[in-house]
Amino acid sequence: MSGHKRSVLPVHPYLLLTLTVLFWSGNMVVGRGLRELVPPFSLAVGRWILAFLLTLPFAWPHRWTLKGLDCRQWLVLLVLGALGVGAYNTLAYIALAHTSATNAALLNSFIPIAIIAISWFFGHQAKKSELVGVGISFCGVLTIISHGDPAILAGFRLNVGDVWMLAAVLSWALYTLGLRWRPPGVHPMALLAALTAIGLLILLPFALHELASGAVLHPTATAIAGIAYTGIFPAFLGYVFYNRAVAEVGAAKGGLFIHLMPVFSTILAAIFLGEVPQLYHLLGIVMILAGIWLTTGFNRR
């Protein structure tokens, strides 16, 4: 794959990660907003069908790079497709039907911590700067979500939606770490098309069962626009950007950028909802950026 990186997206990986998290911040809002219109599995299938159609023209000329993969390599693709496409966003959509976007954002921020913890379990020793950086940025997340009031965090209680979100966190941490084992030589777009196809094959039976069990899909203009957003930006562009960036900077640094989600939520609320940022917003944003700066090594460049 290394031979294709520069020709596909000659953009700095940290910029790609920042754009990815911006798209995913909108995905959380859309997923919460569509909970009454589109059931979670139907939303996941709709977004991935659109993402697959967008990926296919770019992947088709490179389909030959998938030929010759052995059973072990296809097993890796099966696991990655199940975790990254089939599980993460679907579990998040299920969670958002039962919990608030705030709770989901808080729990989603455990992804960088989960990545480092799982890496440590498999023998990878995190650098001190990584641990300190993740800790500082996570404190920034807590500052924003708690509005600077520790009593809010003290009153936090898990509900069934939060448990689903924790499952989503685990699936994405495993997906991010698993990218290191993707088959070498497979073109990035062919890889994404394969993972999307695998995820769709896993999701389709669940979506059909969901509708057969009485869930109702309301094809309103709002629902269609929401599905279009999730398919184009978080699914298609987000995964292209994330996969490419993690291939360059590694799982720990790539996952850390997820802490930017509360930052973007604050900025988007200020732009579109007229909400004035408070002191705790600014303090949290400074801490998140400081943690990312420390971990990614900007201070050594």
Rank of each mutant, 00 (worst) to 15 (best):
T55Y: 02
F272S: 03
V8H: 04
V76P: 08
E130R: 04
F206I: 15
L283A: 03
L195T: 02
A228V: 02
K5H: 11
F272E: 10
R180G: 15
L211V: 11
G185H: 05
V216R: 13
L54A: 08
V141T: 05
R157W: 08
Q278V: 07
Y239S: 08
A225M: 11
D70L: 11
M1P: 04
A168S: 14
L91Q: 02
N243P: 07
G155N: 08
A194I: 06
P219N: 00
V30Q: 01
L50Y: 08
P184L: 04
L142R: 07
A247H: 01
L177E: 03
V132C: 07
F206L: 12
P150S: 15
A126L: 02
L273E: 12
P57Y: 14
L166T: 02
L260A: 13
S171A: 14
R300N: 13
A82P: 10
A207Q: 11
L256V: 12
A104F: 00
P188L: 09
F122T: 14
H147G: 06
G297T: 13
S42C: 05
V38P: 02
L192Q: 04
T296W: 01
T266K: 05
N159D: 15
G178A: 10
T143K: 10
R63S: 03
V38Q: 09
I232G: 14
A114P: 05
C71R: 15
A117P: 04
L211T: 04
L294R: 08
A95L: 06
A87I: 07
P277F: 10
A97C: 02
F298H: 15
L19E: 10
T18K: 02
V11M: 13
W48L: 13
R180T: 09
Q125M: 05
L283H: 02
H281I: 10
G255A: 13
V76C: 01
A251K: 06
W48K: 07
W24S: 07
S7Y: 06
G133A: 03
K67C: 05
K5L: 13
Q278G: 14
E130S: 12
W164L: 03
M1I: 08
P262L: 03
A101R: 07
P205M: 12
A104P: 04
L131I: 09
T266R: 08
L177H: 12
H4T: 01
G135V: 12
G140M: 06
V38S: 08
E130N: 07
V29A: 12
A97S: 14
L15Y: 06
G231K: 11
W74V: 04
A126N: 13
L153Q: 14
S109A: 14
F52R: 03
M287P: 05
A225F: 08
V141N: 01
G250A: 12
A104D: 05
R35M: 14
P10M: 13
P13W: 14
L237S: 07
H12G: 02
L191I: 06
A270F: 04
G199F: 09
N103E: 13
F233C: 02
F23S: 10
L91A: 10
V76R: 00
A44S: 09
F241P: 03
Y88A: 07
E130F: 10
P10R: 12
W172E: 11
R301A: 11
